[in-house]
Design a protein around this nucleic acid. Structure first.
Length: 623
DNA sequence: AGCACGCCGACT
DNA sequence: GTCGGCGTGCTC
């Protein structure tokens, strides 16, 4: 009798295990590992969809077994490699396999299956050469590699890195192997697609994208599962199947969008590093400015690397902290007057990033959650965290008026509109985004990540909030700012002028040479000295109530090895933060899974559909 | 999650 | 005596 070990796509820790079912003899020839099946489950015996995690000859369950009711499809819903990855990631992140299953397998479409053509794709006859192919060459000998991308700037829509990625993927294809490409956002996805089109490789490329219709997604999923080719997409694609995988490519791994904001809070880079070792394949990461994690991989010699040549652009560092001092004002004026195009990068959108009392200069905060209040793109005073529009009350000092602590992109746009009547002023931010602009004398105000492409590149880039972005007290502020500046600078012409507003000291000196590699290295060296991430890992555990958290804390204090992990003091009563060594990660994650599950079940303050504990094994926000 | 089981107070 | 409140625990 064949036994199917079945898992469910549920985040509940109680269901995070395999359940045994008998395979009826008439299904014995059709079931396979990865099949989605219908089974009866629970007291009501209602039917539920599960996934065959393994097929075995004997059951370990004492008690009688129910039969599988049905096989949902002849195509497996998950590949063996996907299941191994899901297990590895849930173990590492102290989550459940069930909460990752949904993201790894798309909704089934019967018509797509009926029309599915499993025959091999005619091999495209491609000759895609005519540029460096630095990456493809390095990957012949390297198993893990970081390539700092060169800033060419003249082609914003198909930059050098995208061509490098395509070339590397093509080399794999010629060896009969697939490539998986993971990008942070849709503009980078579009850039990579442009390169794929240029190389005429669309026929062997399978897009994993939430922007596609369900049937397209399912078709591409089946294609990735059954055909050697190039699978690409945003962070969710980290879990897609890939037949005979040979290479994993990641663009701009330090971008926030690579981190999943829901439990178990994984990041593309870490998931794909797991995948690299599970599937024994090559992996390369590329960006204009490296992440500190990548530099750590280089330091421990897990990754080789190659730095880009220093960009040829002119760099100006203004000493004043003001956004529009006379120097940058003059530079913009001159550029606009001579028909050139200017990009102004502003840290945040809306009208004001914060409001300060005119009397006591205290930052105004939301009455219910005490995070700062800003003026959003619609001009409303709104809490940043609970998103509620709040009427401003009278301050403790007696004054009721406020002034903006720092202007947002909408305000900046208005200010520039008054100052420069000669040019066309455009605004591009997260809510109102331009993907491409063209023309002369354009003055584009954009928030990081929302910079539009422009034919030929910008002539002048003003990083208007440089000093404020870099000086924010968050751990990753500097590293992330460097990444955002680098991405903006990459959109400029090779002889453009770059103005960094208000930088001082060593950072100003680094930026005058566009030495991103050096700046992040220095940042990493300091963190290593202070034993901060990525020298160690830091996890956070938040809990809805204090008593449960205290139980967990004393529980953990007894169980953990003090040489490997320790508690850190943080503000906020409902959060525990620990730092721990990489080698202790699996052990700690396991400890957290079991302990939080026990306490959750006994908790008095359970709410339906809400977790008692939220565990983030790599929380870089808390420090 | 769902659903049943069970132990307690309130009621015809 | 028994009806129904929801806390507790299990589901192959």
């Amino acid at each position: 009798m064949l036994i199917a070990k079945v898992r469910f796509a549920s985040p509940l820790p109680q269901l995070d295990k395999e359940f045994d079912y008998e395979v009826p003899s008439e299904l014995e020839d059709v079931v396979q590992v990865g099949s989605s099946v219908e089974v009866a489950f629970g007291k009501g015996g209602k039917s539920k969809v599960g996934y065959i995690w393994a097929l075995e000859a004997q059951s370990t369950h004492r008690g009688n077994l129910l039969p599988l009711l049905n096989i949902i499809s002849n195509f497996p819903a998950l590949s063996v490699q996907q299941m191994a990855l899901i297990e590895a990631v849930s173990d590492r992140q102290a989550g459940t396999a069930g909460e990752l299953i949904g993201g790894a397998t798309p909704k089934r479409h019967v018509r797509v299956e009926r029309n599915f053509d499993e025959s091999p794709i005619p091999i495209p006859n491609v000759d895609f050469s005519g540029y460096e192919a630095r990456l493809a060459r390095e990957l012949v000998t390297q198993n893990g590699f970081y390539m700092q991308a060169t800033m060419e700037g003249d082609d914003n829509e198909c930059p050098n890195w995208a061509k490098e990625f395509v070339q590397a993927a093509l080399s794999q294809y010629q060896l009969g192997k697939s490539t998986l490409v993971v990008l942070p956002d849709f503009s980078d996805l579009a850039r990579f697609e442009t390169a794929l089109e240029l190389a005429e490789l669309k026929a062997i490329s399978f897009r994993h994208s939430s922007a596609d219709t369900g049937s397209t997604r399912y078709l591409n999923f089946l294609m990735s599962m059954t055909h050697v080719g190039i699978t690409y997409g945003l962070r969710g694609a980290s879990f897609s199947p890939s037949k005979n995988l040979g290479l994993i490519l990641v663009w701009d791994d330090g971008d926030d969008s690579h981190t999943e904001q829901a439990s178990p809070y994984w990041t593309s880079r870490e998931v794909l590093l797991q995948r690299q070792s599970l599937e024994n394949v090559k992996m390369a990461i590329s960006s204009y400015s490296p992440s500190s994690e990548v530099l750590r991989l280089i330091q421990i010699q897990y990754f080789g690397y190659s730095q880009a040549e220093t960009p040829t652009r002119k760099s100006t560092i203004t000493a004043l902290g003001d956004r529009l001092d006379s120097e940058s004002f003059a530079a913009i004026s001159n550029a606009i007057a001579s028909g050139k195009n200017v990009l102004v990068q502003i840290a945040n959108n809306g009208w004001a990033s914060g409001l300060v009392c005119v009397g006591c200069r205290e930052l105004r905060t939301c009455p219910s959650c005490s995070t700062s209040i800003w003026i959003d793109p619609e001009g409303k005073t709104r809490c940043r965290s609970c998103k509620i529009v709040t009427a401003l009350s009278v301050c403790a000092c007696g004054k009721s008026s406020t002034r903006p602590s720092r202007l947002g992109s909408s305000a900046m746009e208005q200010q520039l509109r008054r100052a420069f009547s000669g040019g066309t002023i455009l605004l591009s931010d997260g809510t109102n985004r331009l993907t491409k602009v063209s023309g002369k004398s354009l003055l584009v105000v954009a928030t990081p990540g929302a910079e539009p492409a422009i034919e030929g590149g910008f002539d002048l880039v003003l990083l208007a909030d440089a000093s404020r972005m870099a000086c924010s007290p968050r751990l990753r502020a500097l590293e992330q700012s460097l990444g955002k500046w680098a991405n903006a600078i990459a959109l400029s012409k090779s002889d453009a002028t770059i103005i960094c507003v208000g930088l001082k000291g060593a950072l100003a000196e680094r930026m005058s040479r566009f030495d991103f590699f050096g700046a992040v290295s220095e940042d990493l060296a300091e963190r290593v000295e202070l034993a901060l991430p990525p020298a160690t890992r830091v996890c956070s555990i938040t809990c809805a109530n204090k008593t449960d958290l205290m139980i967990l804390e004393s529980d953990l204090k007894e169980a953990i090895d003090e040489d490997q992990a320790k508690f850190l003091n943080v503000e906020g009563e409902l959060t525990l933060v620990m730092d721990y060594k990489y080698s202790y990660g699996l052990h700690l994650a396991n400890l957290l899974i079991t302990r939080t599950a026990i306490i959750s079940q006994k908790s008095k303050s359970k709410k339906p559909g809400e977790r008692v504990f939220r565990v983030n094994m790599d929380d870089s926000q808390v420090i």
